[in-house]
Design a protein around this nucleic acid. Structure first.
Lengths: 332, 332
DNA sequence: TTGTACGCGTTATCAA
DNA sequence: TTGATAACGCGTACAA
């Protein structure tokens, strides 16, 4: 099997020593121009390509590869985050290996192991919903690592989060201003930290306004648009909900489907923006944060960590902003 | 700097030779159970992790890493494709490094070089719109590689494509059936092969129906929704278009925006599905292909190639199917 | 079944 | 400025 020419081949072709080629390849300046030219030629004609894997096993050298583990690359939320990470990482000369954990803790741990065996210089991880190994139990040396979107697991590390509670409260306040009194909460499992926080924000806003929290209006465990649509339908027909806070974009889309099927809508505010929120009738109001920026910040934090710069804050929280588009209003 | 324990450390701790540890780690069966147990313990207590980068430089061994280069990870179209690739790749024990070329040929070539230096076992590439290096000019050995979504460049390799022309023709036929006679084409630059093919399908369908192709109705170079919205507005007010074929999803979204701004719509069929096509009023009819499946097929083709199995077909073409939802109809 | 010795492609030391 | 030689962590002939 042909593995391509090596430095030795180049050295022979250029009639210089191995070390001189190494110097040339690594951009050393103290090289006789004549030899440099011979080496350049040899590299050209042989089609030499350096072997970074071989270089990386030398002491003091690294792979200049980073690992990113997210829930699902196919989910626009995470791919946007990945894009933000990628931008920063490439700007600093690293490449990125990406993998989806499918929110499975075991799978997540396997991917961590695999990437560490591949000797990535650091990891950016969106922790799976629940469970998984504690970082405190891992054998040293622990790699530089940063957690995003959800709190770091036990023994974790620096974390970049969105302000879920404040964002949710902001959404609910808006619905209250519009005169709603029976605001439904529709979201995924409470075991997901973002969901629990958004739920807290929802309750805090209600309490602050003197509105009682009614358990029958709070719905967790909604994984798909279809489930969300059925849930919203039930909330409207059986529980007298007069507004909906959709705690993620699947819930928003489900609510919109339910409205369409019913031919009737109530005020709606969602959490997380989605591609065509502006195309719905009326356009959908959401609270959302800059996901790509969240990824970029996580990447910068990790790269700093690799360079030995400890982050000032152990946890960075990004604000969620309101994008008011009309769906929070009552029907005219 | 601590680089973690090596096989030598494990061998010493377990009082066995290096080779026995190597055998153990690689799952050889012919090991004295007693020694195996000692090694297991040593691995456990030392927290040994194998160094795949070091292993990969041995003859006959590889990195078990694959590279994927796409236009933009943040674009749902490509992230869906990436997810399809990832699924197959992980199932066969590989990890995937992903990178966005931003449709820049030079950037694409740089990424190819970097991944080859990192010694990936193969590459999956969405070729940038235009230009870039010819594969025929690259020095051997050329890595296993597969191209997706657009035709392979000069000297390329196996390719997985969608049937753009047939899909576009199908969309236009549907609009013709609804009685449209002045069907506008709205899409991105003709330099993008998918766009050129969709344009061809558009013209072929018109000609087959005996409808003349009118240049003023054909619009290339639309990159954003905003541009598309303005273009559609002009088509409706100044060129008497009575239907729109939107050649990608940005064009679809732009058309929907223009309709909303005007408070009036004409029949519309788009190419490529989008997240909330079912939420628009009416739901948007599209022709689309299975992007994740396209990625999965590309991945399988590459993995086969790595195993020495040449693909039967040099080019695999996936059908585009019609998802009829109502937007192709005239107003009642 | 186990171990010694060597090579993979690269960079670093140190003497020339 | 250059070059011989020794690592880096690992897998494998080949000998024991």
């Amino acid at each position: 099997m042909d593995r391509g020419p090596t430095m030795i081949d180049v050295a022979e072709a250029a009639s210089v020593s191995l070390k001189t080629v190494s110097r040339y390849v690594n951009g050393a300046t103290n090289i006789n121009p004549e030899l440099a030219e011979r080496i350049r030629e040899a590299v050209q004609t042989l089609g030499y390509r350096r072997n970074l894997a071989a270089a990386s096993i030398r002491p003091g050298w690294t792979s200049r590869m980073l690992g990113l583990i997210i829930g699902d690359l196919g989910n626009p939320y995470y791919s946007t985050l990945a894009r933000g990470v990628e931008r920063e990482v490439h700007a600093r000369g690293y490449i990125l290996t990406t993998a989806s954990s499918d929110e499975d803790a075991t799978r997540n741990d396997e991917l961590v192991d695999r990437m560490l065996e591949q000797r990535v210089d650091g990891l950016i991880i969106v922790p799976p919903y629940t469970g998984g190994r504690s970082w405190a139990d891992l054998p040293p040396p622990l790699p530089p690592r940063v957690f995003v979107d959800r709190p770091a697991p036990d023994g974790g590390g620096p974390t970049v989060l969105a302000d879920n509670a404040a964002g949710a409260a902001r959404a609910v306040e808006l619905l209250l201003q519009e005169g709603a009194t029976r605001i439904a909460f529709v979201g995924d499992s409470e075991l997901i930290s973002t969901m629990a926080e958004r739920r807290q924000g929802y309750e805090a806003a209600l309490l602050a306004a003197g509105v009682e929290v009614e358990p029958s209006l709070v719905n967790h465990g909604v994984h798909t648009d279809e489930q969300a649509a059925r849930t919203v339908e039930t909330l409207l027909t059986e529980h007298g909900a007069d507004a909906v806070f959709a705690a993620n974009n699947r819930a928003s889309i489900g609510a919109l489907r339910a409205f369409r099927a019913r031919g009737e809508r109530v005020p709606l505010v969602g959490f997380d923006d989605f591609e065509s929120a502006e195309l719905t009738s009326p356009p959908t109001t959401v609270v959302s944060h800059d996901i790509a920026e969240m990824g970029a910040i996580a990447a910068r934090t990790l790269l700093d960590l690799i360079d030995g710069v400890e982050p000032i804050e152990r946890s960075i929280v990004l604000p969620a902003v309101l994008r008011q588009r009309g769906s929070e209003k009552r029907l005219q």
